[in-house]
Amino acid sequence: MAAILSVTNISKSFGEFVALDNVSLAIESGSILGLLGPNGAGKTTLIRILTGITGPDSGSVNLFEHNHKVTRISYLPEERGLYKSMKVWEQALYLTQLKGLSRIEATTNLKLWFDKFQMSEWLNKPVDSLSKGMQQRLQFVITVASKPDLLILDEPFSGFDPVNADIIKNEILALSECGVTIVLSTHNMSSVEQLCTHICLVNRGKIMINNHLSEVRSQYGKNQFELTFQGSTVAFANALGHRFELVSLATKNEIHSAQIKTHGPHSANELLRALLPYVELKSLKEHSPSMNDIFLEVVNEVQLESTPHE
């Protein structure tokens, strides 16, 4: 698929601190890209470069045409606010018009979204009379009402209760079905699993993973097994030998459940062969890692690697 926005070899530093180090990324048109990474990894800087808020020190940013029109980007920042004393409707109209929509266009789009989110009674209220959740909803509406081709959302679910977070999730999926490309930056791994088609994991100014979610999963899911058994745990540990590593072990009602990692390409059959003589196996399955696991693994690996140098 064609890219809608790409950055090539971009770097950005603030004084001594290197926020992005030679990063390249192409956002596929129509995808939902999960932008992950620990705090201070360079996500916000990357997003600011994608949105054109700041420019990179070096490297290039390419925004491609979408349906032969200039691609419209809309961005919902993590640190988001509104003019407190402005009225809801005036504010929504102002911010939508600032994105380049005509007054009429902005009015039509906003009306639609205000109805959808049942916000029509608020029109003449000043923003600071709204609750935090209401303000978050208003901000989401303002972000999407400009009919963007590329929607960049930074922690869109923060401040929402589970019910409203679900509503937002569904709207994101609906927008994606309409062909909107979405970049979703969040620490909420379960929502990444629910929504994203692609993953981009940033750590210490570098991109660690950049792939389809399914690919990432199978890549990191390989060589890990979960099993339950009865019998001696000592015998079990001995049986593993040097080919398999015990990641975790828990016992409940005399049933032990263990997580096993293989060193090298060893199959489930090999594991079975090694264990069958010593313990009574109850279940065995290939472990499918959660995004959370992958995240922790990648980030911790980097930390371990770099610790001796520091």
Partner: peptide, 16 residues
């Protein structure tokens, strides 16, 4: 200062 402390600034400079 108002725009900065309100955090409305980033929304705006993503469009202008």
């Amino acid at each position: 200062i108002e725009e900065k402390s309100n955090r409305v600034i980033e929304v705006i400079i993503s469009s202008v």
